[in-house]
Simulated assay, not measured.
Amino acid sequence: MVTKSRVPETIDAYLADLEDPKVKKTLGALRTQLRKLLPKATESISYRMPTFKVDGDAVAGFAFFKTHCGYYPFSGSVVPALKSELDGYATSKSGVTFPPDQPLPAKLVKTLVQARLAEIATRGKKPAAAKKGNAQARGKRVVGKTATAGFQVGVVRTLPMTAPALWDWVTTQPERWLGPGATLTAEPGGHFEVPKRRGSPGVRGEVRVVKPGQRLRMTWQPDGWKKPATLQLTLMPKARGASLHVHMEKLPDAEAREAMRERWSKVLSQAVD
């Protein structure tokens, strides 16, 4: 990774050991961006590379190898899930490589970081401090608040249908997952609306991103919310069926986060009924 045989103990030392000015500039800029995206992260050297950890979870890492740089989300699913966004880059299941003189775009780095944070949130791992201080909460899903996405929650389930069939289900049968009477125009700039029912507020939003067969991203604003949240549905083909990952961020508070977790857990559990 670095040109010397010893392993640096800090990221500052790692960068100082890099002899190629282009590499040092590129990875130095990447570190600066990660600091902005993850202001509460701990910086360290893990697996012989600079690593950013949040509440003990490795979120992002980078390294230099002889001729190329690499970015690593410490996950086997983040890179495959962002296949379309990473088109043109050399990738593996665990990382992305790029030439030192062609840094990863800032927007792409942000997407990679948010995808990893969402995965951690979906898994519901509790911060170390919470584990020690609340033994009674063991086994319960705890989803946190991040500096970049606010309150967020994710729910994922593998369904017994092909990815194309699942995409069709999402885009042409909105009443099945948005609610009775829902309408949806699944194209960028399109809108959706769910009418108010007894016990359930009306919801509306604008479709922002459509990656056919892969991803649908939209705003989400129920009656009474001052600002909209963001809702994203991501599909991934599996050996048996396809997974649907529902992720929400910029939720107003912890109460809304829990309500959305319950809502989407129920929707996915009834998806094939």
Rank of each mutant, 00 (worst) to 15 (best):
K4G: 10
V7E: 05
P8K: 08
A16T: 03
D17S: 11
L18W: 05
E19D: 14
D20N: 12
K22Q: 15
K24Y: 08
G28F: 11
L30T: 13
R31F: 12
K36E: 14
K40G: 09
E43N: 09
S44L: 14
I45H: 04
I45C: 08
S46K: 12
S46W: 05
M49V: 04
K53F: 11
V54R: 13
G56L: 15
D57E: 15
V59I: 15
F62C: 03
F65S: 15
T67A: 12
T67W: 01
T67E: 03
G70V: 08
P73T: 12
P73E: 13
F74T: 10
V78F: 10
P80E: 12
P80I: 04
P80F: 04
S84W: 05
E85L: 10
L86G: 09
Y89H: 13
S94R: 11
G95V: 06
F98D: 05
D101V: 10
P103H: 07
L104T: 06
L104A: 11
L104R: 13
L104P: 06
P105H: 09
P105D: 11
A106D: 15
V109H: 04
K110F: 06
K110Y: 07
L112W: 14
Q114W: 02
A115W: 02
R116H: 12
L117Q: 04
A118H: 07
I120W: 05
I120C: 03
G124T: 03
K126N: 05
P127V: 03
P127E: 06
A128S: 15
A129Q: 08
A129E: 13
K132L: 14
Q136N: 06
R138S: 15
G139S: 11
V143H: 01
G144T: 08
A147V: 13
G150N: 04
T158D: 12
M161I: 02
P164W: 01
A165M: 07
W167T: 01
V170N: 09
P174G: 07
P174H: 08
E175C: 01
E175N: 01
W177M: 10
P180A: 09
G189K: 06
G190E: 11
E193V: 09
V194D: 02
K196L: 06
K196T: 11
R198K: 15
G199P: 03
S200M: 12
V203F: 05
R204G: 15
G205Q: 13
G205S: 12
E206M: 04
P212G: 08
Q214Y: 13
Q214P: 08
L216T: 06
M218L: 15
T219L: 00
T219K: 04
T219A: 04
G224P: 00
G224W: 02
A229S: 15
L233V: 06
L235N: 01
K238I: 10
A239Y: 00
A239E: 14
A239K: 13
A239P: 00
R240K: 11
R240E: 00
A242E: 00
S243F: 00
H245M: 08
H247I: 05
M248Y: 10
A254P: 07
E255L: 08
R257Q: 15
E262V: 07
K266P: 00
S269T: 10
A271L: 04
